[in-house]
Design a protein around this nucleic acid. Structure first.
Length: 313
DNA sequence: TCGAAAAGTATAGATGGGTG
DNA sequence: CACCCATCTATACTTTTCGA
């Protein structure tokens, strides 16, 4: 049985920009989202509206501007040249409007906003429980859409609001926060390292290695295997660090991982930590926020919240 | 209180991919 | 190639909201 959805006003952080008998400025974010997604249905999901509501909103804009704005192409839509022109003009207009209005008030405990997060493994296992727990207690209406990885886009092509990973990204309307320095170690089965207490870099790469698959575009391990010689040391490519630990603890393979990952290995077979004879022994962990409006109070709240929660491993 | 308009539900129609 | 199914947009009609 389908649940009946009652028509409702937009969330509390929205500003009503309807000018009676003139242009409805609420149509601008609808237009922008449709331009971004090139898809009425997906735009509707992002905006928290039904698909016909977005379709009707675009129809009103079509009448206003006397241009089709979007033409159907296959299963999707393609913007007309006039739509591209309007997109640029609306962006300028919105920028001016954002600067004129004082920042709206954001109430996390009342908000039903959706935030999209990309979190790189293994940081997801570390931070997601903390983040979910905090949101559950302090902002239960907020929904988190989390994907794995270190990309600005989800596998569905949606824009990410925040990213947790080992890379900082520069650019306009991108906010970067250094969270902490993650210390790395080599790990091996307990009996492995007794014969090589003082290891050099060349000796390290003569051993057989287990890594997070380098086929993953955002592989945690890739940074240490940037030459064919180093890659020739790889004997096993797993999907995540915890599967590497399992393999390493039962074979003669070694792997590189953050020290906190090994500390979590409470109940498994014993492993030892090896000091890395490598240049990269630490990696900076960053929180990156993407926004079209850095003064958006919801964005600021989430940025500060994630910074606080993810301050240390 | 009432009417206009926005946003809802239901559904028709177009398109594209998979399969026999 | 035909058919089926999933996906996506548009339209008809209903419900809800809000300003006069």
């Amino acid at each position: 049985m389908s649940e009946k959805i009652i028509a409702k006003r937009r969330p509390e952080e929205d500003i009503n920009l309807r000018l009676k008998d003139k242009l409805d400025l609420n149509l601008i974010p609808v237009f922008s989202t449709v331009m971004q997604r090139r898809n009425i249905t997906k735009a509707a999901q992002v905006l928290g509206m039904s698909q016909p509501a977005v379709s009707n909103a675009i129809s009103r804009l079509k009448k206003t501007f006397g241009d089709p704005l979007f033409v159907r192409q296959g299963r999707g839509i393609e913007p007309t040249p006039r739509a591209f022109q309007l997109e640029a003009e609306f962006q300028q207009a919105l920028f001016l409007i954002h600067n004129v209005f004082p920042p709206a008030h954001f109430e996390p405990h009342k908000s039903s906003r959706v935030f999209t997060l990309a979190v790189l493994n293994p940081l997801d296992t570390l931070f997601l429980p903390r983040i979910y727990q905090y949101i559950h207690h302090h902002a239960p209406g907020i929904r988190l859409n989390v994907c794995s990885g270190q990309s600005r886009y989800t596998p569905d092509g949606e824009h990410v609001d925040f990213m947790l990973g080992y890379e900082s990204t520069m650019g306009e309307n991108i906010v970067n926060r250094l969270l902490f320095e993650d210390e790395m170690v080599g790990v091996a089965k307990k009996t492995w390292g007794q014969n090589v207490p003082l290891m050099t870099e060349s000796a390290f790469y003569r051993a057989r290695h287990a890594v997070v698959s380098l086929k993953n575009s955002d592989s945690f391990s890739a940074i240490w295997y940037d030459t064919p010689l180093k890659r020739s040391a790889i004997a096993y490519q797993g999907q995540c660090l915890f599967s590497l630990l399992e393999v390493v603890s039962r074979t003669n393979l070694i792997a590189i991982m953050p020290t906190w990952v090994t500390r979590r290995w409470h109940n498994g077979p014993e492993i030892i930590q090896l000091t890395l004879p490598l240049a990269v022994k630490k990696r900076a962990c960053y929180l990156t926020g993407y926004t079209t409006n850095p003064d958006d109070p919801g964005f600021r709240w989430m940025l500060d919240t994630l910074t606080r929660i993810c301050q240390k491993p």
